[in-house]
Design a binder for these strands. Structure first.
Lengths: 250, 250
DNA sequence: TTCTCGTTCTCACCGGACGAGAATCCTCCT
DNA sequence: AGGAGGATTCTCGTCCGGTGAGAACGAGAA
């Protein structure tokens, strides 16, 4: 009995293939507990649509070119515009720290640009398109603090507040208090709440009506932060100002 | 009456969104001639699976993060390994021309790496994951010539031979003759068959059993080619040799 | 408030999906 | 060649979940 709908099955298969890189049909049937003929039916539809390819000689299925096209479209749609990218890059250079830019997207909070290098690498989980754990990242806090309280609570409701380190804020009340403070001070700090030994800071970017529409952030090893808080804050504000100026114009 | 199956509808919607970047439900319903309630049902499933996001305040739908994940998986699976990338890059430097590497993938011929720069840009349609028009590209010819004639004819059967320029080889018999020559000479030239004013050349990369498993190629403005054919050929052979060595080892 | 438009719900119909099992088709292996 | 074993497709009766017209709902705008 198909407890899950056809579409769910289809995407479950797509994701199984994506996760393994290369899978035989039997393996999929086993993992998802779908009878073999049904798996083949779906696989063939996916192949026909070019979301999968069938490597006949190995009896394996892999992702097809359409998957890459989707990824490209997504990237193209979301990538921050050049002035924002430039400001982020300069922030990176100025503070010698990986720098990030994030925005709202519907109900989501998404990273749309990041600038790093070998000496100052980004935090591993933070990549283009990252959209999780807003309660535990500096830019997430800024953008959460810019929501109405209804938006915010439904956001938290939907995603929960995973505990990532011993310092992660774990209770909604505490988060609310914290975000109020963030909101009044206009800067968010995040001390080892996302990754151990790592500190982040973020400030808001605003549009012409003063609404928060984005967040500019940096990450660095916690040991490098102490004593430089003001310097970090002023650099963030300077480049966030550049971004805001662009937002007002565009 | 649904002439096309549910899955086809689903992907048609996904692709409509990808193409437009941001679309209202009504627009999708209109374009695909699907009744509105059905469109919403599918949209909601896609949103639930995170392949789309719903921008409520604008009443628009856009691609979701899972699309990017699929793209990443595809890329990771297909990207040529470092030694191949290095050889391709060096070929690019040596010949001052955009360089390409392509392989078989199931029944397909796919570009898995390219190296170019502002002075020597790649041909615009050729990007990572490119898999069309094998009859009109140098690397495509190399890989076609390495197939059995059954494989080749079913390949051509399935994809046809689009005419891209006045010089594109347009008839299967001519292609067969041409590929025989390619096969005996061990190099493929392509003179303005893919894009006007552009010439490409490619040589095979072989594994330990001498089978053709890849193709290394360059593209350049046709006017720069004349008189340098031997130099181009010998550079191609040298770096293809490096690739073959890696293929034998790995 | 009322209007408007986007979105969801309701519900009876019915076509396409379902999956066990058998039949083919391949591909090595001998 | 001739099998052996696994991968893939086919068959077919059942029946469930998708379908879509129309109405209802809800949030913003006027």
């Amino acid at each position: 009995m198909p407890a899950i709908s056809l579409i769910n099955r289809t995407f479950a298969i797509l994701e199984t293939v994506a996760a393994s890189g290369s899978v035989p049909a039997k393996e999929i049937a086993h993992q998802l507990e779908i009878p073999l003929p049904s798996v083949y039916r779906l696989l063939n539809e996916l192949v026909a649509n070019e979301y999968l390819v069938h490597i006949k000689k190995e009896g394996q299925f892999e992702l097809g070119p359409k998957c890459f096209d989707l990824g490209l479209s997504f990237r193209q749609r979301l990538l921050a515009p050049p002035p924002i990218r430039q400001a982020t890059t300069e922030l990176h250079r100025t503070l010698q720290a990986a720098a990030y830019f994030a925005i709202y997207r519907g109900a989501d909070i998404v990273l749309t640009y990041l600038s790093d290098c070998e000496q100052h690498p980004r935090l591993r989980p933070l990549r283009f398109g990252f959209h999780e754990a807003a309660h535990a990242t500096a830019f997430g806090k800024i953008l959460l603090s810019g929501m109405t309280s209804e938006q915010r609570s439904s956001y938290i409701q939907a995603r929960g507040m995973p505990i990532l380190t011993p310092h992660t804020i774990a209770r909604p009340e505490l988060l609310d208090d914290h975000l109020n403070e963030v909101s009044t001070r206009g800067i968010a700090w995040e001390h080892e709440e996302f990754l151990p030994r790592t500190t982040c800071a973020a400030v808001p970017v605003r549009n012409s009506s003063g609404m928060c529409v984005g967040a500019l952030a940096v990450s660095m090893p916690s040991r490098k932060v102490s004593g430089f808080e003001t310097r970090i804050e002023s650099a963030l504000r300077e480049y966030a100002g550049q971004c805001s100026r662009y937002m007002r114009a565009g």
